[in-house]
Protein backbone atom coordinates (compact mmCIF):
# COMPACT_ATOMS: atom_id res chain seq x y z
CA UNK A 1 0.00 0.00 0.00
CA UNK A 2 2.85 2.22 -0.87
CA UNK A 3 0.49 4.64 -2.62
CA UNK A 4 -0.71 5.76 0.73
CA UNK A 5 2.65 7.23 1.65
CA UNK A 6 1.97 10.60 3.11
CA UNK A 7 3.00 13.61 1.09
CA UNK A 8 4.93 16.32 2.81
CA UNK A 9 2.10 18.86 2.24
CA UNK A 10 0.44 17.12 5.10
CA UNK A 11 -1.90 14.20 5.18
CA UNK A 12 -2.37 13.51 1.46
CA UNK A 13 -3.81 10.02 1.55
CA UNK A 14 -4.87 8.12 -1.51
CA UNK A 15 -7.15 5.15 -1.28
CA UNK A 16 -8.06 4.82 -4.93
CA UNK A 17 -9.13 1.21 -4.64
CA UNK A 18 -11.08 1.40 -1.40
CA UNK A 19 -14.23 2.18 -3.34
CA UNK A 20 -14.17 -1.29 -4.84
CA UNK A 21 -14.21 -3.18 -1.53
CA UNK A 22 -17.06 -5.61 -1.20
CA UNK A 23 -18.65 -5.08 2.22
CA UNK A 24 -21.61 -6.72 3.88
CA UNK A 25 -24.49 -4.30 4.16
CA UNK A 26 -25.57 -5.46 7.60
CA UNK A 27 -22.91 -6.04 10.21
CA UNK A 28 -19.44 -7.04 9.19
CA UNK A 29 -19.15 -10.76 9.23
CA UNK A 30 -17.49 -13.00 6.75
CA UNK A 31 -18.75 -12.74 3.18
CA UNK A 32 -20.52 -15.92 2.16
CA UNK A 33 -22.00 -16.45 -1.24
CA UNK A 34 -25.44 -15.52 0.04
CA UNK A 35 -24.40 -12.52 2.16
CA UNK A 36 -26.21 -9.33 1.27
CA UNK A 37 -23.42 -6.95 0.33
CA UNK A 38 -23.09 -3.65 -1.48
CA UNK A 39 -22.83 -5.76 -4.63
CA UNK A 40 -26.33 -7.02 -3.94
CA UNK A 41 -27.59 -3.53 -3.30
CA UNK A 42 -26.26 -1.98 -6.48
CA UNK A 43 -27.25 -4.93 -8.63
CA UNK A 44 -30.73 -4.73 -7.15
CA UNK A 45 -30.78 -1.06 -8.15
CA UNK A 46 -29.79 -2.13 -11.66
CA UNK A 47 -32.74 -4.50 -11.78
CA UNK A 48 -35.01 -1.78 -10.45
CA UNK A 49 -33.85 0.64 -13.12
CA UNK A 50 -34.37 -1.87 -15.91
CA UNK A 51 -37.74 -2.89 -14.54
CA UNK A 52 -38.68 0.75 -14.04
CA UNK A 53 -37.75 1.67 -17.57
CA UNK A 54 -39.43 -1.28 -19.22
CA UNK A 55 -42.32 -2.13 -16.93
CA UNK A 56 -43.39 1.41 -16.04
CA UNK A 57 -42.15 3.11 -19.18
CA UNK A 58 -44.03 0.85 -21.57
CA UNK A 59 -47.07 0.54 -19.33
CA UNK A 60 -49.17 2.70 -21.62
CA UNK A 61 -48.28 0.69 -24.76
CA UNK A 62 -48.99 3.96 -26.52
CA UNK A 63 -48.73 4.35 -30.27
CA UNK A 64 -47.43 7.83 -29.68
CA UNK A 65 -44.88 7.07 -26.94
CA UNK A 66 -44.32 8.91 -23.70
CA UNK A 67 -40.80 10.03 -22.85
CA UNK A 68 -39.84 6.93 -20.93
CA UNK A 69 -41.39 4.68 -23.51
CA UNK A 70 -39.38 6.33 -26.26
CA UNK A 71 -36.20 5.76 -24.26
CA UNK A 72 -37.13 2.10 -23.85
CA UNK A 73 -37.95 1.81 -27.53
CA UNK A 74 -34.72 3.57 -28.43
CA UNK A 75 -32.67 1.08 -26.39
CA UNK A 76 -34.61 -1.80 -27.87
CA UNK A 77 -34.20 -0.54 -31.41
CA UNK A 78 -30.53 0.25 -30.88
CA UNK A 79 -29.60 -3.24 -29.75
CA UNK A 80 -32.01 -4.90 -32.18
CA UNK A 81 -30.44 -3.13 -35.13
CA UNK A 82 -26.95 -3.90 -33.82
CA UNK A 83 -27.70 -7.62 -33.59
CA UNK A 84 -29.33 -7.62 -37.00
CA UNK A 85 -26.53 -5.69 -38.68
CA UNK A 86 -23.62 -7.55 -37.14
CA UNK A 87 -24.76 -11.14 -36.73
CA UNK A 88 -27.46 -11.28 -39.37
CA UNK A 89 -31.10 -12.23 -39.18
CA UNK A 90 -30.32 -15.63 -37.63
CA UNK A 91 -28.78 -13.78 -34.70
CA UNK A 92 -32.11 -12.20 -33.79
CA UNK A 93 -33.07 -15.44 -32.07
CA UNK A 94 -30.50 -14.59 -29.40
CA UNK A 95 -31.54 -10.96 -29.12
CA UNK A 96 -33.05 -11.27 -25.59
CA UNK A 97 -29.76 -12.57 -24.17
CA UNK A 98 -27.73 -9.84 -25.79
CA UNK A 99 -30.24 -7.22 -24.75
CA UNK A 100 -30.03 -8.51 -21.18
CA UNK A 101 -26.25 -8.19 -21.20
CA UNK A 102 -26.43 -4.71 -22.67
CA UNK A 103 -29.00 -3.48 -20.17
CA UNK A 104 -27.11 -4.88 -17.21
CA UNK A 105 -23.80 -3.37 -18.27
CA UNK A 106 -25.15 0.01 -19.26
CA UNK A 107 -27.16 0.46 -16.08
CA UNK A 108 -24.43 -0.90 -13.82
CA UNK A 109 -21.92 1.44 -15.46
CA UNK A 110 -24.10 4.49 -15.04
CA UNK A 111 -25.13 3.60 -11.50
CA UNK A 112 -21.45 3.19 -10.72
CA UNK A 113 -20.92 6.80 -11.77
CA UNK A 114 -23.13 8.11 -8.98
CA UNK A 115 -20.75 9.55 -6.40
CA UNK A 116 -20.04 7.23 -3.43
CA UNK A 117 -21.67 4.38 -5.28
CA UNK A 118 -20.21 0.96 -5.93
CA UNK A 119 -19.40 0.00 -9.52
CA UNK A 120 -20.30 -3.65 -9.88
CA UNK A 121 -18.88 -3.85 -13.40
CA UNK A 122 -15.44 -2.79 -12.16
CA UNK A 123 -15.00 -6.23 -10.63
CA UNK A 124 -13.24 -8.82 -12.66
CA UNK A 125 -15.43 -11.50 -11.09
CA UNK A 126 -18.52 -9.92 -12.60
CA UNK A 127 -17.11 -9.15 -16.03
CA UNK A 128 -15.40 -12.53 -16.22
CA UNK A 129 -18.70 -14.28 -15.64
CA UNK A 130 -20.30 -12.14 -18.34
CA UNK A 131 -17.48 -12.75 -20.80
CA UNK A 132 -17.20 -16.45 -20.01
CA UNK A 133 -20.91 -16.96 -20.43
CA UNK A 134 -20.67 -15.33 -23.85
CA UNK A 135 -17.59 -17.37 -24.72
CA UNK A 136 -19.08 -20.69 -23.64
CA UNK A 137 -22.43 -19.98 -25.26
CA UNK A 138 -20.81 -19.01 -28.53
CA UNK A 139 -18.44 -22.00 -28.56
CA UNK A 140 -21.15 -24.52 -27.72
CA UNK A 141 -23.53 -22.91 -30.16
CA UNK A 142 -20.90 -23.03 -32.87
CA UNK A 143 -20.36 -26.74 -32.43
CA UNK A 144 -24.06 -27.53 -32.10
CA UNK A 145 -25.05 -25.56 -35.19
CA UNK A 146 -22.10 -26.31 -37.44
CA UNK A 147 -20.55 -29.48 -36.04
CA UNK A 148 -16.92 -29.85 -36.93
CA UNK A 149 -17.26 -27.20 -39.60
CA UNK A 150 -16.97 -24.72 -36.74
CA UNK A 151 -13.26 -25.58 -36.65
CA UNK A 152 -13.03 -23.97 -40.09
CA UNK A 153 -12.90 -20.74 -38.12
CA UNK A 154 -9.29 -21.57 -37.30
CA UNK A 155 -8.34 -22.99 -40.67
CA UNK A 156 -7.98 -19.96 -42.92
CA UNK A 157 -8.66 -21.49 -46.31
CA UNK A 158 -7.84 -18.30 -48.18
CA UNK A 159 -4.22 -18.34 -46.96
CA UNK A 160 -1.38 -20.29 -48.62
CA UNK A 161 -1.29 -23.91 -47.46
CA UNK A 162 2.10 -23.58 -45.78
CA UNK A 163 0.93 -20.68 -43.66
CA UNK A 164 -2.29 -22.30 -42.51
CA UNK A 165 -0.97 -24.25 -39.50
CA UNK A 166 0.75 -21.13 -38.18
CA UNK A 167 -2.38 -19.09 -38.71
CA UNK A 168 -4.41 -21.83 -37.06
CA UNK A 169 -2.31 -21.55 -33.91
CA UNK A 170 -2.61 -17.77 -33.91
CA UNK A 171 -6.35 -17.96 -34.48
CA UNK A 172 -6.69 -20.52 -31.72
CA UNK A 173 -4.79 -18.36 -29.27
CA UNK A 174 -6.74 -15.27 -30.22
CA UNK A 175 -9.94 -17.25 -29.83
CA UNK A 176 -9.08 -18.23 -26.27
CA UNK A 177 -7.86 -14.75 -25.41
CA UNK A 178 -11.27 -13.38 -26.35
CA UNK A 179 -12.96 -13.91 -22.97
CA UNK A 180 -9.92 -12.47 -21.20
CA UNK A 181 -9.82 -9.27 -23.21
CA UNK A 182 -13.60 -9.13 -23.31
CA UNK A 183 -13.83 -9.11 -19.52
CA UNK A 184 -10.74 -7.08 -18.69
CA UNK A 185 -11.65 -4.39 -21.20
CA UNK A 186 -14.90 -3.68 -19.41
CA UNK A 187 -13.69 -4.17 -15.84
CA UNK A 188 -10.41 -2.37 -16.42
CA UNK A 189 -11.98 0.64 -18.09
CA UNK A 190 -14.48 1.15 -15.32
CA UNK A 191 -11.94 0.51 -12.58
CA UNK A 192 -9.35 2.80 -14.19
CA UNK A 193 -11.80 5.65 -14.56
CA UNK A 194 -13.02 5.42 -10.99
CA UNK A 195 -9.49 5.10 -9.60
CA UNK A 196 -8.33 8.13 -11.57
CA UNK A 197 -11.23 10.21 -10.27
CA UNK A 198 -10.37 9.09 -6.77
CA UNK A 199 -6.71 10.06 -7.17
CA UNK A 200 -7.73 13.52 -8.37
CA UNK A 201 -10.10 13.76 -5.44
CA UNK A 202 -7.15 12.97 -3.17
CA UNK A 203 -5.29 16.01 -4.54
CA UNK A 204 -8.19 18.23 -3.54
CA UNK A 205 -6.87 18.10 0.04
CA UNK A 206 -4.23 20.66 -0.94
CA UNK A 207 -5.98 24.03 -0.98
CA UNK A 208 -3.93 25.51 -3.84
CA UNK A 209 -4.53 22.59 -6.17
CA UNK A 210 -8.12 22.01 -5.15
CA UNK A 211 -9.83 24.10 -7.90
CA UNK A 212 -7.74 22.41 -10.56
CA UNK A 213 -8.54 19.09 -9.00
CA UNK A 214 -12.27 19.77 -9.08
CA UNK A 215 -12.08 20.81 -12.73
CA UNK A 216 -10.09 17.70 -13.53
CA UNK A 217 -12.65 15.52 -11.75
CA UNK A 218 -15.43 17.14 -13.76
CA UNK A 219 -13.55 16.54 -17.00
CA UNK A 220 -12.73 12.93 -16.17
CA UNK A 221 -16.30 12.42 -15.06
CA UNK A 222 -17.50 13.57 -18.46
CA UNK A 223 -15.10 11.15 -20.10
CA UNK A 224 -16.32 8.39 -17.82
CA UNK A 225 -19.94 9.00 -18.80
CA UNK A 226 -18.85 8.47 -22.39
CA UNK A 227 -16.78 5.43 -21.46
CA UNK A 228 -19.66 3.92 -19.48
CA UNK A 229 -21.80 3.88 -22.58
CA UNK A 230 -19.08 3.00 -25.07
CA UNK A 231 -17.93 0.03 -23.02
CA UNK A 232 -21.46 -1.32 -22.84
CA UNK A 233 -21.78 -0.77 -26.58
CA UNK A 234 -18.44 -2.42 -27.28
CA UNK A 235 -19.18 -5.39 -25.05
CA UNK A 236 -22.50 -5.89 -26.82
CA UNK A 237 -21.16 -5.47 -30.31
CA UNK A 238 -18.28 -7.85 -29.64
CA UNK A 239 -20.81 -10.35 -28.37
CA UNK A 240 -22.60 -9.93 -31.68
CA UNK A 241 -19.35 -10.40 -33.59
CA UNK A 242 -18.58 -13.60 -31.68
CA UNK A 243 -22.12 -14.77 -32.25
CA UNK A 244 -21.68 -14.17 -35.97
CA UNK A 245 -18.60 -16.39 -35.88
CA UNK A 246 -20.66 -19.14 -34.32
CA UNK A 247 -23.48 -18.76 -36.84
CA UNK A 248 -21.31 -18.39 -39.94
CA UNK A 249 -17.90 -19.87 -39.13
CA UNK A 250 -16.51 -19.65 -42.65
CA UNK A 251 -14.22 -16.69 -43.13
Amino acid sequence: MAVETEAEEGGLVFHPLDQFIVKPLFGDGEIHWYTITNVTFWMALTILCVAGLFALGTRGRAIVPSRMQSVAELAYGFVYKMVEDVSGREGLKYFPYIFTLFLFIVFANFLGLIPTSFATTSHIAVTAVLALSVFLTVTILGFVLNGTKFLGLFWVSSAPLALRPVLAIIELISYFVRPVSHSIRLGGNIMAGHAVIKVFAGFAAIATVAPLSVIAIAAIYGLEVLVAFIQAYVFTILTCVYLKDALHPSH
Binding site: I47, A55, Y97, L103
Partner: peptide, 18 residues
Protein backbone atom coordinates in the same frame (compact mmCIF):
# COMPACT_ATOMS: atom_id res chain seq x y z
CA UNK B 1 -18.82 -16.47 -4.90
CA UNK B 2 -20.88 -13.65 -3.47
CA UNK B 3 -20.50 -11.45 -6.56
CA UNK B 4 -21.07 -14.27 -9.00
CA UNK B 5 -24.15 -15.44 -7.16
CA UNK B 6 -25.74 -12.00 -7.09
CA UNK B 7 -24.69 -11.35 -10.69
CA UNK B 8 -26.49 -14.49 -11.81
CA UNK B 9 -29.56 -13.49 -9.83
CA UNK B 10 -29.45 -10.05 -11.45
CA UNK B 11 -29.00 -11.41 -14.94
CA UNK B 12 -31.91 -13.80 -14.55
CA UNK B 13 -34.08 -11.02 -13.18
CA UNK B 14 -33.20 -8.71 -16.06
CA UNK B 15 -33.71 -11.53 -18.53
CA UNK B 16 -37.13 -12.10 -17.03
CA UNK B 17 -38.01 -8.42 -17.36
CA UNK B 18 -36.70 -8.31 -20.91
Amino acid sequence: PNQIFWLLVTLFAIYFVV
